[in-house]
Amino acid sequence: MNDTFSDNHQIGIVSTFSELINTDFYGEVNAMCWYRHLDGDFKEIVSKLQLKENITEVSAEDLLALQLSEKGNTAREIILTDLQLLAEFGALPSLNLLKNYERDEEFDFISTDVYSYHVDRSPIGTDTFLCTYYGAASDILPNDQAVQKIQIPEIQEKLRELHDGPEDEFDNFLKEYFFDLHYQAKPNARPTNLGLGHLWRLAVDHPAQKVLPCVHRAPVENEGEYRLLLIC
Rank of each mutant, 00 (worst) to 15 (best):
S111G: 06
R121K: 13
D171E: 14
Y133N: 07
Y183L: 06
E161G: 08
V147A: 07
P166D: 15
F173E: 12
A136E: 11
K175T: 01
D139M: 13
D139L: 14
F178K: 08
N143G: 13
L162D: 04
H163D: 13
T128E: 14
L141G: 03
T128L: 15
A137I: 06
Y117C: 02
S138H: 09
G165D: 15
G135A: 11
E154F: 11
D171P: 00
I155H: 06
Y115D: 02
K175L: 08
A137P: 04
S116M: 03
G125S: 15
K158S: 01
A136C: 05
D168H: 13
D180P: 00
A146W: 00
Y133C: 10
I155F: 01
T128A: 14
E161P: 03
Y133M: 10
Q148F: 03
P142M: 08
D139P: 02
A136D: 10
Y177A: 05
E176L: 10
Q151I: 08
F170R: 01
T128C: 14
H182M: 03
D139V: 10
T126E: 14
H118C: 03
R160M: 13
F179H: 08
Y115K: 00
D171I: 07
A136R: 04
L162I: 07
I150C: 08
D144Q: 13
C131N: 12
K175C: 03
I140A: 04
L174M: 04
F129D: 07
D113A: 00
Q151D: 14
A146P: 00
D127G: 09
E169Y: 07
D127S: 15
E169K: 14
I150Y: 06
N143H: 13
T132A: 11
D171V: 05
H163M: 07
I140N: 01
F129N: 08
D113W: 01
P153H: 03
F170H: 02
A136F: 02
S116C: 12
F173C: 10
A137N: 07
S122N: 15
L159K: 05
T132L: 06
D120Q: 10
N143T: 14
D168S: 07
F179Y: 10
P166W: 11
K158V: 06
Y133H: 05
I155K: 07
P142N: 09
I150S: 08
D139T: 14
T128S: 14
L159Q: 09
Y117D: 02
I155M: 03
Y117S: 08
P123E: 13
L162F: 01
H118N: 04
Y134I: 03
P166E: 15
L130N: 08
E161R: 09
Y134A: 11
Y177Q: 12
A146E: 01
I152F: 09
G125Y: 09
I140H: 05
I150K: 04
D127H: 15
P123L: 09
D139W: 12
E167H: 09
D139A: 09
K149T: 09
Y134T: 00
G125I: 09
Q151H: 14
N172K: 13
K158Y: 05
L181E: 10
N172D: 15
L159G: 02
K158E: 13
R160H: 07
F170W: 11
